[in-house]
Amino acid sequence: MGRSPRWLRTLVILYVGLLVGVPLVFVFQRAFAHGAGALWTALQDPSMGNAIGLTIRVVLVALPVNTIVGVGAALWIVRHPSWLTRIIDRVIDVPLAISPIIIGLMLELAYAQNGWLGRPLAALGLQIIFSYPGIVLACIFVSLPLVTRQLIPLLREIGSNQEQTAASLGAGPVRIFLTITMRSILWATAYGVSLTLARILGEYGAVLIVSGNITDLTQTLTLNIGANFENYNAYQGFVGAGVLALTSVIILLLLGVARHRERKRHEHLA
């Protein structure tokens, strides 16, 4: 492959740099602005600690759920197409098309204690809105298509001949998935999972509505950052933003390494 023209490379570097690079640097610069001691104190802020804890607990449920559902949905849509999967294939993108704040409102209307789904659940003693389950639900909703969208084109490209061959050799569905399908989609799944993780960590609008944003109870890290800025505690906000941004950068770097390794392996084998 030849190199792209110099002006195009310059344009892309400027675009990405000005839009992503420079602002990111400023967040870290602000977090370090008052020295290491102040940063250490700010990092120990109990409300931020609670917010990080809640965010981790949300990730621990929402991420595996969306990974399993995402892989399953992609396999179903590609391998067993029907009128139903064609509808699901369209509907699955809805969370990407609708503003998160509207998703939050939709969930609140449905799952509030007087809502259509919330009322029977409340009768069972389950509170969804303004509590942990609602936040998990919102995060699952907004990141629903990310794994599936990564896998659908890949599964189509791979085709089902390998899986069918494995079946003719005596393998059952579970063994076929573990030995054939999963090995082919591993890195694409990892990529989708990383996107899902980044999306969950960064979710603000939908979580804002369904959580009630109660400090120390239903405040995720993004909400905590927002609250600090609103309460004229900008420095604490920048520290929280720095933590979140650093996490995302680490995720992206790990992903970059993984993708690079996979590509290398393919080049080596080709």
Partner: peptide, 14 residues
Amino acid sequence: IGFCFQDYAPFYQL
């Protein structure tokens, strides 16, 4: 039954 596809469907990861 032994079945061979036109593209031989090799298990690329193995």
